[in-house]
Simulated scan of single mutants.
Amino acid sequence: MQKPIYRRIVLKISGEALAGERGFGINQDTLNSIADQIKEIHDLGVEIAIVVGGGNIWRGRNSDQMDRATADYMGMLATVINALALQDALENRDVQTRVQTAIEMKEIAEPYIRRRAIRHLEKGRVVIFAAGTGNPFFSTDTTAALRAAEIEAEVILLAKKVDGVYDSDPVKNPNAQKFESLEYIDVLNRGLGVMDSTATSLCMDNKIPIIVFGINEPGNIKKVIFGENIGTFVKGG
């Protein structure tokens, strides 16, 4: 029987991915589909940590009439809403889940504690990291890179609405070319937008590979876990 090639992963889910075709809020069908895919790989024994974005509710850096720090804190709270929705969907599928937040809100989630997070993973629980790093001016991409380094994850799976990394926006340019693989330095030098530069540099420094793939196709997370060549693979030279 084929076995997963990764033992411990960080799955980064953008807020936009949770919105489905509407582009805002939480689409229940999309949420259920993602939860089904996570359960599928959880049942294979993969240790799963999740970082969820908040762009479907609020994106701090898009607010040019508000103090940036305030806007970013609002974005962090939006990620908590998404994390709780995902936790509910997973636990409805009998997947034990813990939400840990970088901003303490003990009535609804645990505070982020590295050793506790690792212990949850070792016990087969899915851990969802919410509220970013707890600091403004840092994206949830950076959170994914930081948490992956802290918990010694083997890979970051970057689940997006697009199916990989392109040389231009495939929505605007029908002739955009998709990359099968890239090096970290190429992403930085060419400004490809896989992750922000802080997150990409952190992955490069800690040699954490990134796989960018489309979340909207059911079964894609499992395909990645088994090493199928979908999306774009980002690593060192």
Rank of each mutant, 00 (worst) to 15 (best):
E154M: 11
Y112P: 00
G75T: 11
P111S: 12
E16K: 08
R7G: 09
A78E: 05
N92L: 13
G134P: 04
A153V: 12
A17R: 03
Y6G: 01
T101K: 06
V127A: 04
I230H: 05
I151N: 03
H42N: 13
S181L: 12
N175H: 12
I41N: 01
D169C: 10
A144G: 02
Q2R: 15
D64N: 15
G53Q: 05
H42L: 10
T143Y: 05
T70Q: 09
L18Q: 01
T143N: 01
D205R: 14
M204C: 04
N82K: 10
I103S: 00
R114N: 04
E183N: 11
N62Y: 07
V224S: 02
G23W: 05
P218M: 09
F233L: 14
R190T: 08
N62S: 14
N32P: 00
Q28K: 15
M66T: 15
R98F: 07
I113F: 05
L77Q: 09
I118Y: 01
I50K: 03
I38W: 03
R115Y: 07
I26P: 00
R93E: 07
F213K: 02
A130D: 05
A85I: 13
A159V: 12
D64I: 15
L146P: 00
N229C: 08
T70I: 14
D141I: 14
K161G: 03
E107N: 10
V52M: 05
E217A: 13
Q65R: 15
G231Y: 06
R114E: 09
H120T: 06
D163A: 11
P111T: 06
P174A: 10
K160H: 07
N92Y: 10
D169T: 08
F179R: 08
V224G: 00
T30N: 03
I5A: 03
F226G: 02
R68I: 13
T97C: 06
D167I: 13
